[in-house]
Amino acid sequence: MIFDYLKYIFSAGNEHDLHSPFLFDFYTKVLKNSETAEAFKAVEALRKSLLKDERTIEITDFGAGSKINKSNLRRIKDIARNSQKSPKLAQLFFRIIRYFNYNQIFDLGTSLGITTAYLATASSAAKVCTFEGCPQTAAVAIQNFEKLGITNVEIITGDLNETLQNQLQQTNQIDFAFFDANHRYEPTIDYFEKCLAKAHEDTCFVFDDIYWSEGMKKAWDYIKCHPRSTITIDIFYVGIVFFRCKQPKQHFILKF
């Protein structure tokens, strides 16, 4: 991964490399926007409390597992430290949802709900469907949503291979989806293809940890080359995909 990061650093461009008005605005107004929102304070205060939480829960993991902790018994403070997206990334997702006024949000991988909270607070009109395989982790996430007063989240617990398809059958479209459930090639492609059936012209998909493993790098290459993926953006930590059929197919590596 160190080699991948060095390659990214030397390849990443900025707004001067963008000629499309859509991409220029996205980069300057969303990707590089450092403005803070009032909602960030409450979510980050909760994060701080979770980083001190000594409670232990038993993890049910349907994904690729953790590279850091192989035990099924984990302290909440360790999950908060190792499994949650950084404030910088979570706040980027918040800005994407707010900028495009997205309403139907899919979050594949709830964990303790910190990132989910950012997705939900970006728009009170939005509905967030978040998926978590582990019942005990989901229970902690529900407590966290209650502490934050978040009411526009539906948490769906169980094996994502089953729950995702069931939820998609009840969904007309997906505006924004964050893929952070299973860091392996086959499941990532499977979830992408299933959600793609509900994507539209203005949909945005974000894929976590695109350099996490060889399998994830292979999955990201597949997604970039997919005929429906017209604009793909690599910011190393995540890959961002748009499906704007009127835009020429282009791939960008951008500074974040």
Rank of each mutant, 00 (worst) to 15 (best):
Q250S: 09
I2E: 06
E193H: 09
L254N: 05
K29Y: 08
E54G: 03
I253N: 02
E186C: 07
F192R: 00
L73S: 08
Y5G: 05
E146W: 02
L46K: 06
G13I: 01
K127V: 13
N72I: 14
I240L: 11
N166E: 13
Y99S: 05
P135L: 04
Y237E: 13
D190C: 11
N144C: 06
F100E: 09
A39Q: 10
E58A: 08
T171A: 01
K255C: 11
A64C: 11
I155W: 00
H19G: 13
Q143M: 10
A125F: 15
P248E: 06
F100Y: 10
A219I: 14
Y8E: 06
V140W: 09
R184H: 14
Y102P: 02
I155N: 09
I9T: 00
I253P: 03
K127I: 09
K77N: 11
N182M: 12
K217W: 11
N166L: 08
I105Y: 11
K32E: 10
I68R: 00
T157M: 03
A39H: 02
V43C: 04
Q84A: 14
E186Y: 12
H251G: 10
L23M: 12
C134S: 12
F24D: 04
Y5R: 09
A45R: 12
N101Y: 12
L51G: 07
F93S: 00
L92M: 03
T171R: 06
I210K: 03
K67H: 13
L23W: 12
R98A: 14
K246G: 10
Y8G: 09
I57F: 09
T121C: 01
C129D: 00
T121F: 03
T163D: 05
A80K: 02
H183S: 04
A181Q: 08
F131S: 03
T151N: 01
E201T: 05
F40K: 09
L92K: 02
F40N: 05
N101V: 12
A181V: 15
F100M: 01
F252W: 12
P187L: 01
R47F: 06
P87G: 05
I142V: 15
Y185K: 06
C195V: 08
E15Y: 04
K127S: 13
Q169Y: 00
I235H: 03
C129P: 01
S86W: 06
T203G: 04
D159R: 09
R74A: 00
F106W: 02
F26Q: 05
I210H: 08
I240D: 07
G133F: 00
A122G: 06
K77F: 00
A12S: 13
I240P: 05
D4W: 03
E38F: 05
A199F: 07
S11K: 13
I2G: 03
E35S: 10
A139H: 10
G215Q: 09
A120L: 09
D190A: 11
T116R: 04
Y237F: 12
I174C: 02
E214D: 15
F145E: 08
I105C: 07
R81G: 02
I233V: 14
S66D: 08
I155L: 09
Y211C: 13
N172T: 15
N69K: 01
K41I: 15
C129Y: 11
R184K: 12
F192N: 01
T203V: 14
